[in-house]
Computed example of a mutant assay.
Amino acid sequence: MRNSICVLLACMAFGIMGCKDEPVPKPGAMLRLEYPEQNYSRLASDCPFAFDYNLLAEPEFQNGCNLVLDYKEMKGSIYVSYKPVEDNLKELLSDAQKLSYEHVVKADNILEQPFMNGQDRVFGMFYEVKGDAASQSQFYVTDSTNHFVTGSLYFYAKPNYDSILPAAVYLQQDVRRIVESIRWKSEKPQ
């Protein structure tokens, strides 16, 4: 009798334990990143160009009219370089395009978006880079006779597209604003 009770209790214990659902890991929570609304100001400098920049960035000029727009809170920067056109437009265009396509090895896709503002003589290209590339956005603009400006967006971290996507989208809007708002101050660079 005693053995029957032990067997019955063991069967009940296995039956109760066998009715539990298999544990399933919870899906990872998505981090919700919110950035302040963009507030733009005109860049003040002695350089032969001007553009709107996000006040969240800290502009720092380096080597003449080259500058870095540093977004410390977002751990990213937009690097802007200026070169005068001196019968070298083809080389400048080739270098800018080559720089953008050096990321094709790591990029999933590179979207080219031409920009033309004939009234203010601003012509160029905006590159949106998707994937684990070092730079998520690049651009160049020129008046095709005197001025040539290039820019690149970089983050201070190893590229992981999923992690930096919210910040990349936010800063790509700032890069587009630079392209759309750039104006030349003089015909000849100083």
Rank of each mutant, 00 (worst) to 15 (best):
Y154T: 11
N66K: 01
Y71S: 03
F49A: 06
L9R: 15
E112I: 11
N117Q: 12
S4L: 10
M30Q: 10
I78M: 04
L31N: 13
E86D: 11
F14G: 09
S4Q: 14
K26E: 12
P48L: 00
F14E: 14
D95W: 04
I182Q: 05
D21A: 10
A29H: 09
F148W: 06
H103M: 15
P189H: 12
M74E: 08
I78H: 03
F155V: 05
D162T: 08
E112K: 13
P84D: 05
G28A: 15
V105K: 14
L8Y: 13
V175A: 02
L56V: 10
A50G: 10
Q172W: 03
A168Y: 00
N66L: 02
L67G: 01
V24G: 02
C19Q: 11
L171R: 02
A96R: 02
V24S: 03
S81M: 10
A50T: 11
F123D: 12
N146C: 14
N63C: 09
E22P: 07
A167M: 08
N160G: 05
S152D: 03
S181L: 01
K83S: 10
G15N: 15
E60A: 14
H147P: 08
A29C: 13
L8C: 13
C19M: 13
N117C: 06
D108W: 04
A96F: 10
S181E: 07
K130F: 06
H147E: 08
Y127E: 14
P166L: 02
F148I: 06
E91C: 03
A157V: 11
Y35L: 02
M74A: 12
Q173C: 06
V169A: 03
G18V: 07
F139T: 00
N109A: 11
E187S: 15
V24K: 15
Q173Y: 06
S94W: 09
I110G: 14
P59A: 05
F115Q: 05
Y154Q: 13
N117D: 10
P36I: 04
G131S: 07
P84F: 01
K185Q: 09
